[in-house]
């Protein structure tokens, strides 16, 4: 297994390296720069601008800058933001908890409702419930989550005024107020989990129907177990095993969706960091957040694969 882990990491490092190299080349061959004198008419002279570029180290050739950035990266340093002059590492660390709060809650919601809907539509296969859950699953993949967000804000925040329109907590509340945090979390977490619920429910349904056909289920029924026990203890347990890998594959969607969700709800997480970084052409922030999220997803996938082999002894990691 150690060999498996090592090989997976060794495979992804050079590609991540290539991604950073490619981004760097693109960055420096693209028109425009972090400092666009046209944005500050009259405020900044040519000399002053050159001075600023020099201070940021942007007047060096791109390969020197890249080497510098890589050297820092090897020492686990993501550099400093051009705009805020803060270490990117600190900026990510400050925003990571909010993103994790959102994504983990969404994942739990997606699991609970995905499994529930999946099991019910497998049991009541071919009924109206199954039909509705099928339509819901297709719609769940087709609806843009930011649009769903707008609709829910309109209904629950603008019209009914039950929930706040955005943010992670009410402004002015210093103390940690659970109810307040919960109210802020409901809408973003619901939206982010929506597509995943659709995905998981179809998966669980298909897997459960597959498992029910197995011989050991017939054996369990034949020895006179109650149908509920057969389904819950024998069938569902085995049907849920492959969900572990599906979880891993979904991490990428979760982090991607978080960017949009955080934008709609003014959620102070990593997603906002990268969007603002793009607007301000704050390259270290952009590169740092992208790389960090990629590493997070790669590690998540790896953990999911290892967990899969652990819960299902039939699987061997090679």
């Amino acid at each position: 297994m150690t060999q498996f882990v090592v090989r997976r990491l060794v495979q992804s490092i050079p590609v991540l390296f290539l991604i950073t190299l490619f981004s760097f080349i693109l960055m420096y061959s693209s028109p425009g720069n972090f400092i666009n004198p046209l944005e500050y008419p009259g405020e900044m002279g040519q000399e002053e601008m050159e001075m600023l570029l020099h201070n940021l180290g942007l007047d060096r050739p791109w390969y020197v800058q890249y080497g510098d950035w890589m050297w820092k990266l090897i020492h686990l340093d993501l550099g400093r933001s051009f705009k805020f002059r803060q270490p990117v590492k600190d900026m990510i660390a400050a925003r990571l908890p909010a993103t994790l709060e959102l994504t983990v809650t969404s994942l739990l919601l997606a699991l609970v409702f995905g499994i529930l809907i999946g099991v019910l539509s497998a049991i009541y296969r071919g009924t109206i419930f199954d039909g509705i859950s099928r339509v819901f699953a297709v719609a769940g993949h087709a609806v843009p989550i930011f649009w769903l967000g707008l609709i829910l804000i309109w209904i629950f925040s603008v019209t009914l005024r039950w929930l706040p329109t955005g943010g992670i907590k009410s402004t002015g509340t210093e103390a940690w107020d659970l109810w307040d945090r919960f109210k802020h979390l409901i809408l973003p977490a619901t939206i982010l989990s929506f597509g995943r619920v659709a995905n998981f429910s179809r998966y669980v349904r298909g897997e459960l129907l597959e498992v029910i056909r197995q011989d050991y289920i017939r054996t369990a029924r034949a020895k006179g177990l109650m149908e509920r026990v057969v389904l819950m203890r024998h069938a569902l347990r085995n049907a849920l095993i492959p969900l572990v890998t599906v979880l891993g594959m979904n991490l990428r969607w979760l982090f991607g969706g978080a960017v949009l969700t955080e934008t709609i709800f003014a959620w102070p997480g990593m997603g906002r960091l990268i969007v603002n970084g793009a607007f301000q052409r704050d390259y270290p922030v952009l590169m740092g957040t992208t790389l960090f999220s990629a590493v997070l997803v790669i590690v998540g996938n790896l953990v999911a694969d290892i967990a899969y082999a652990w819960v299902d002894p039939r699987i061997r990691l090679e």
């Binding site: 991604i19 990428r252 982090f255 991607g256 960017v259 990268i274 992208t290």
Partner: peptide, 15 residues
């Protein structure tokens, strides 16, 4: 495999 582990929207934003 590696490209598939970077969230699409991150790469879109980066580019």
């Amino acid at each position: 495999n590696t490209l598939l582990s970077v969230p699409t929207i991150f790469m879109l934003i980066l580019l």
